[in-house]
């Protein structure tokens, strides 16, 4: 057990996930809905790249299951999408951590765009959503723009934990 991971870190991790999932369902005005940043995959990318031994594909799958119930969608859609995100992050986490913040943001935007395309495709297959344009992809742009802020926020939180 690494010294940094105490009950407090698990608790803060839980709180962060709760806040991220609130952001993913909170009702927004119609013109911002397509720009909703995808905080849950962003948080998973951060966790996987920062703590690759603690958080991995399995965690992502369970969090996705929770998100499915929360959004009322067919069980497994978000799970599958988040598993892909987590797999990508865990296979590339060494390279990813070396990158500059702006480069990281670009990659996050691309990965989240893939996640959105994939989960939208699954929703259409499951008859839950319909195909109407690519406007839902704007969410990946806002996610990429918010990535540096998220990293800053996480490093702020981690500065409290004992080293």
């Amino acid at each position: 057990m690494r010294p940094g991971l105490t009950a407090a870190s698990y608790f803060s991790g839980f709180c962060i996930f709760v806040v991220a999932s609130i952001f993913s369902i909170i009702p927004l005005p119609l013109w911002v809905v397509n720009f909703r940043p995808e905080f849950v995959p962003m948080v998973i990318i951060y966790w996987v790249s920062a703590l690759p031994l603690r958080v991995s594909v399995g965690t992502a799958w369970f969090l996705g299951l929770f998100l499915d119930v929360l959004e009322g969608s067919v069980l497994g859609i978000n799970g599958l999408g988040l598993v892909l995100v987590a797999y990508f992050a865990s296979s590339q986490h060494r390279r990813f951590r070396m990158l500059k913040s702006s480069q990281q943001a670009t990659i996050v935007a691309i990965v989240i765009a893939l996640y959105l395309v994939f989960s939208h495709w699954l929703r259409v297959i499951n008859g839950e959503s319909i195909y109407d344009g690519f406007s839902y992809l704007f969410g990946s742009l806002t996610s990429g723009l918010l990535w540096p802020l998220l990293v800053y926020f996480f490093s702020f939180i981690r500065s409290f934990s004992p080293r």
Partner: peptide
């Protein structure tokens, strides 16, 4: 597992208890 779960949910409603 996800694909199986989606299929089970969509077609048979086995997983209502999990939900």
């Amino acid at each position: 597992i996800s694909i199986a779960l989606m299929f089970a949910d969509n077609r048979f409603g086995y997983v209502d208890n999990i939900r």
